[in-house]
Design a protein around this nucleic acid. Structure first.
Lengths: 147, 147
DNA sequence: TTTTATAACTTGACTAGTCAAATGATGATG
DNA sequence: CATCATCATTTGACTAGTCAAGTTATAAAA
């Protein structure tokens, strides 16, 4: 019983790497009192605000329930405001979040980039990006698998 | 305030893709009553058994605490046996797990591979693999970041 | 033999997420 | 106006994980 195909080896690498880099990123963001997940959500809000929970959930690929719980935490910490606006709730950043992001964003982007800049040249990064984009886009089409 | 460097774009892609494919994989493995995380752990045990919790934790990149909880669940389901063996606990698969894996393994490997086989040719997969291997190995060196 | 070390494992309190059933908000119809 | 429909959000019960403090198993020193 073989336990590897090229695809499964790639899969494993991707999982282990994202796991690992996520933890490193959590460590890194501690100085801003943020987790990687929180940073991600706040960034999406920053770009698209004001937006509804459904829209946000889609952007960060979590379920309705997941985004609801996350936003409760962020609201409790004073990073966001939600207000009932017709049937939906509209989310926007507070001053506090805006100013933390102003500081954290460039640092976090540099941190993320360092994973790649340190070992791949520009050409290789572009290759990696296009390959992953194709793979990712393809996976999105699988969402409702046949049968 | 720009919000993208090539590195950060790659990072985002990787996170979203692993997220998404993890969920799809959970769906897929439901027929075997397994989650992706459980499958992963069982596979590592299968390859390296008998082994200790510490060793296993390292293989799947989770903490001691994390592996402890996971193993409690797997033991409750009857997939593994742990026995105190000197200061450490030695883990091995039960018959039940062996026979489920016999069935699930080829299917799961094919499933994982399909994410890549469907959109990348052999050459491209090899490229993706080598690039990710470099990136991953590099990230492992960061574990204790300077300062 | 009681104390002292130490390595391996567990546990409490928490974040982050899933699914599916329940609740809220609003509008439309009998 | 009451009920019905519908979309958005919340919630209960769960998996999966983190960190740091607490246990347990074993060996060696006092």
């Amino acid at each position: 019983m073989r336990n590897n195909t090229m695809g499964s080896l790639i899969w494993l690498r991707l999982m282990r790497f994202t796991n690992q880099s996520n933890q490193l990123s959590n460590d890194f963001l501690k100085r801003f009192d943020l987790t990687t997940a929180q940073f991600d959500v706040l960034m999406q809000i920053r770009i698209y605000q004001p937006l509804t929970q459904m829209e946000l959930a889609e952007k960060v690929t979590v379920t309705q329930g997941g985004i609801s719980r996350m936003l409760v935490r962020l609201e409790k910490e004073g990073y966001i405001i939600r207000k009932q606006d017709w049937k939906t709730k509209t989310i926007s950043l507070t001053e506090k979040a805006e100013s933390i992001l102003e500081q954290a964003m460039p640092e976090q982007l540099a941190f993320q980039s360092s994973f790649f800049d340190d070992v791949l040249n520009e050409e290789e990064q572009k290759t990696l990006y296009t390959l992953m984009t194709r793979v990712h886009k393809h996976s999105q089409k699988k969402e409702l698998p046949p049968e």
